[in-house]
């Protein structure tokens, strides 16, 4: 109920863009936050989700269940594509167990980037598996950390056992142009996947 002294908001007359998102996933420390910061037009914003984890696997009829509160940080950046579209980049929460957040992030996403750290390749298995299962199109970006062994993209592809159609790209999460190239590769991959005549 608007009260008598209410005024129309300035927002009423402004063009409102469509908000879309791309997910930046990967294991803890793979460079997700760095990548978001490298391409975002704003200093990445951060919010959090506070969760109560109820005891699990224990009969809770006694009402003595223990609860612990967990805070999940959610970092995101923004790229204004044009006056009609704004792209949000979301880094997935580092801890694998927060699947509910992944589900929500993946819902309606244009696609995902899986950042792979060749020093700890297994830390991105979850992400690859998740996007395959959800049929969210993704690319693998191999973040080249200083001092990391020089694996080539094909070695990483074999180790991760991703589909041949999934682009695997060497990247540097600290470098804006490199991150841009990864995102361009992702969107190209998504567009190609949507036109059967061009795929394969």
């Amino acid at each position: 109920m608007a009260s008598a002294d209410s005024e129309p908001a300035p927002g009423d007359t402004e063009a409102i863009p469509q908000a879309v998102k791309i997910i930046i996933a990967g294991g803890f420390g793979a460079g997700k936050t760095t990548m978001v910061a490298s391409v975002s037009e704003i200093t990445p914003l951060s919010t959090e989700e506070v969760m109560t984890e109820a005891s699990y696997g224990i009969d809770d009829l006694g009402g003595v269940e223990e609860k612990t509160t967990t805070t999940v940080a959610l970092d995101f950046g923004r790229i204004t594509v044009n006056s009609d579209v704004v792209l949000y980049l979301f880094g997935t929460p580092g801890q694998d167990r927060f699947w509910f957040m992944w589900d929500e992030l993946a819902e309606g996403a244009l696609g995902a980037v899986v950042l792979a750290d060749t020093r700890r390749l297994e830390t991105c298995f979850h992400a690859v598996d998740f996007f395959e299962r959800r049929e969210v199109p993704f690319v693998v970006a191999v973040n080249r950390f200083d001092g990391a062994d020089g694996y080539d993209a094909e070695e990483v592809r074999r180790a991760l056992d991703v589909d041949a159609a999934v682009p695997v790209i060497l990247a540097d999460a600290r470098d804006r142009a490199s991150c841009r190239d990864v995102l361009v590769a992702l969107v190209t991959h998504v567009i190609r996947g949507r036109s059967p005549a061009l795929s394969g």
Partner: peptide, 27 residues
């Protein structure tokens, strides 16, 4: 006191993807 609002010019997914591609390339 708040209103949900949709985009002023709703675009098809295909058009969104192409806009995003063009926008990213010009970064």
């Amino acid at each position: 006191s708040l209103q949900r609002c949709g985009p002023s010019r709703p675009l098809a997914r295909k058009d969104i993807l192409h806009a995003v591609l063009v926008g990213l390339r010009s970064l």
